[in-house]
């Protein structure tokens, strides 16, 4: 279970490879990469600046990873979340889950991403064409997060 919050980019291949080194019982490694889009609540997004709450962010991400480990039989999991100034195409987040069987890995990865959306203390400022807008929380993200609230 690894959690990192950092300003700089990450090497996807190296991060994923490190998750399963020597773990030959792992049958599936599922990963998700979140990217900055060139559109959002603003029609044209030139940059996105992510702010977070140092101290709380580490705790919440750790709790989300622990919850995933309790719900599924995972060999390892990874959350890397960036903050700071990003541009369209830049990576924001890498989530990965490794398990003996693919279903657990898929479910755990999706669960972590859904909970990040509604629980991790990040805020996103979109800027473009002279406009600036804080991204608002989405109802469908809340619904996606809530469907995991009953333990399987």
């Amino acid at each position: 279970m690894t959690v990192r919050i950092q300003e700089h980019d990450f090497d996807v291949n190296a991060e994923l490879a490190a998750l399963t080194v020597g773990q030959h019982h792992v049958g599936g490694l599922v990963s998700f990469i979140g990217l900055v889009r060139d559109f959002g609540e603003l029609q044209s997004v030139a940059s996105m600046t992510l702010e977070h709450y140092p101290g709380m962010t580490e705790k919440i991400l750790g709790k989300i990873a622990s919850e995933a480990a309790e719900r599924w039989n995972l060999s390892s999991s990874l959350i890397i979340h960036r903050y700071g100034y990003l541009e369209p195409g830049d990576r924001i987040v890498l989530v990965a889950a490794a398990s003996e069987h693919r279903v657990s890995a898929f479910d755990a990865c999706e669960f972590i991403v859904d909970w990040l959306k509604t629980k991790a203390p990040f805020w996103k400022l979109e800027e473009g064409n002279g406009n600036a807008k804080w991204v608002t929380a989405r109802m469908d993200d809340t619904a996606a997060s809530a469907r995991w609230s009953v333990k399987k």
């Binding site: 979140g34 709450y53 709380m56 979340h81 924001i92 987040v93 991403v113 990040l116 959306k117 509604t118 629980k119 991790a120 203390p121 990040f122 805020w123 996103k124 804080w134 991204v135 608002t136 929380a137 989405r138 993200d141």
Partner: peptide, 10 residues
């Protein structure tokens, strides 16, 4: 005590 808008991680 921290005061902030609804969070938008991920």
């Amino acid at each position: 005590v921290a005061l902030f808008p609804p969070v938008t991680g991920g």
